[in-house]
Design a protein around this nucleic acid. Structure first.
Lengths: 346, 346
DNA sequence: ATTGGCACTCTATCCGTGCGAGTGCCAGAC
DNA sequence: GTCTGGCACTCGCACGGATAGAGTGCCAAT
């Protein structure tokens, strides 16, 4: 069992260590914080904390450093979100309020978050789960190419070129479009994929005799639906990892690779369990299954057109959790508001 | 003046240093290469090379290391491209030959190049300079949104949502499309921008009375044209910089930032002057104006639908130039062939 | 439960030393 | 003139020992 004061000592250790990057000793604590007790008392508390594996000593006679478990207790029980300054708030607001479509907004969001936190910022695209197809459009480009466009009600647009190798008449195009549309429009993306797959297996249905060309178009539509199903994200500030290089024992390579791959990070972010405020942190070794055991991720849920996604930052385990939690939450709230306005005020 | 043998000594130094990352001494040279002369003779040659500032000593009594100028002479006069192995060639071929549109092809290209070289790979999109607009399409999404699509003859597609706030009738849309089309289709992108700007200044021309909504659409088209004008690139393998961390004196931060910004690297790549083979290298301090004085860039031109662009790799100055030059050239050739096939064989 | 005191441990730093790699130069051979 | 062997010399670096300093752990007293 750890006493209340011991927890405050833990908080002091975490804060000072994040601040100075130096292991913190009992003397430094009584100097920088006003506990009203002597260093020896603090030492007793520290011994308890060490028994509980909340802090550890890099070597026998040095200050203590928080363990991953220590950080965990800190964010769960000790951290108060550090509210943003007025300047920061108005910064976010002015940065985000410019007009633009979903891509623009998310791109600006991720940049705002990285300047705010100095960490790698990540914004997940709203999930496909509840998205439905709202439009399918075919545009003939000539020379045997057809531009195939699929739009969802969440504002995601996918466009891709099908090499049909033949050109169609206008009315043929209208027929194909109508047929694909009837299969997809108004339906959830995931159902659409099934329906299209069935259509692919039965090319005889074609409303035109250009069977090969038509199924090429259908195949491309299927590809686009598949793309919608996959989670996407935008990321910014990867260079910040290099500024914090010393906080990583090993090379930056695995981290940079995970960032480039995206899929690992998307999985990690998706599997985190948010609290009632929509916030969550995943700390150090907790990320071991993802090969990111020296990093922490802080996320917040946001709402977009009925579907829900996440914004977050990635950085070294030794990060300023109160600030990052507050920043992530603030940005998520702005984003939610912005996307809701967008939805209604039109 | 440097003798012919001195140049061969330079080659040996560059090759060994790139290989081992150790400063190379006269004795090591006579051991690893068969010059048929003694170490003392090599030392005389090395003294000459040092006078010419082609090699330098990290400290008085250690082996020598190529200077940037030394690498330059190596690349210009001594390097023979190291031909790819059959396995590598067929690897590129199988990797690239899958079907897909321009985005797909370039994305695969950049990945092929990064696995081939182990460096950061960059592929410039074909330039807008000679591209012409081939299609303008409007798709009404409902709820006051209009999807605005612009396509060029080089296969680049841009799509963006205009918040018109009102919905149009079908025939209104057709009119607007026709009007914008008549301004742009078949004309170079850069001219289009001027024409659209003129149109923006004179909204009275609108073929419909929904003036505000119409000019919103036109504004979005202008944005898309502007986007075409800007050079674009795809990049892969940034994590490789972390593997070569030791080759950079300072932090990786400026490099990673330049990669994220893209614009610096695009300018650098554009300003390089290729030889008659379409190859070029920019070495170390030569990149000082771009803040990349510890890095080298190797590029090759490629042709795409009449316009020309570049593929390249970025890495530490101490890189394997023969291999990288050969890889970049091979990939550029495959890419040229692929895009030409694509153009004609349809 | 808290405190002051004290012995102890470990690290980081400095200094001196020796070693070895590698150079630079010279005098002689070809 | 070019090449070569030889040799003195220069440094960087690794090693060992000594020292200072930070910080702990424990204990006896309050």
């Amino acid at each position: 069992m750890v006493s209340e004061r011991a927890l405050q000592v833990l908080r002091a250790i975490v804060e000072d260590y994040v601040d100075t990057r130096e292991p913190v000793g009992s003397k430094a604590i009584v100097e920088r914080h006003s506990f009203g007790v002597s260093a020896a008392t603090i030492r007793n508390d520290m011994a308890m904390l060490e028994d509980e594996d909340l802090i550890a000593a890099p070597h026998t006679s040095s200050g203590r450093v928080p363990t991953d478990k220590g950080y965990r207790v800190f964010v769960d029980h000790l951290a108060e979100l550090r509210p943003l300054t007025a300047a920061q708030r108005s910064g976010i607001a002015s940065f985000l309020e410019a007009p633009g479509d979903l891509d623009d907004v998310l791109a600006r969001t991720v940049r705002a978050l990285t300047t705010l936190t100095g960490q790698v910022a990540i914004v997940q695209y709203p999930s496909f789960a509840r998205a439905t197809v709202s439009h399918v459009e075919l545009v003939q480009l000539g020379a045997g190419r057809m531009l195939v466009i699929v739009v969802t009600d969440t504002g995601r647009v996918s466009q891709r070129i099908a090499a049909t190798r033949v050109d169609f008449e206008e009315d043929e195009i209208a027929l194909i479009r109508a047929e694909i549309g009837s299969l997809l429009v108004g339906r959830p993306v995931r159902d659409g994929l099934k329906r299209i797959a069935a259509r692919l297996d039965d090319p005889g249905l074609a409303a035109t005799d250009r069977v090969a060309a038509t199924s090429e178009i259908v195949r491309v539509v299927a590809e686009e639906l598949e793309e919608f199903r996959q989670d996407r994200m935008v990321m910014a500030g990867a260079a910040n990892l290099a500024r914090r290089e010393n906080d990583f024992r090993g090379s930056l390579y695995p981290l940079l690779e995970a960032i480039e791959e995206q899929v690992t990070i998307l999985r990690l972010m998706s599997e985190m369990v948010a609290d009632e405020q929509g916030l969550a942190a995943s700390i150090g070794r907790e990320n071991e299954p993802f090969g990111l055991s020296e990093a922490s991720v802080v996320i917040s849920d946001y709402d977009a057109t009925g579907s829900r996604a996440r914004v977050g930052v990635l950085g070294p385990t030794r990060m300023d959790y109160p600030t990052n939690l507050a920043s992530v939450r603030a940005v998520a709230r702005y984003l939610t508001r912005l996307l809701e306005e967008d939805e209604s005020g039109r």
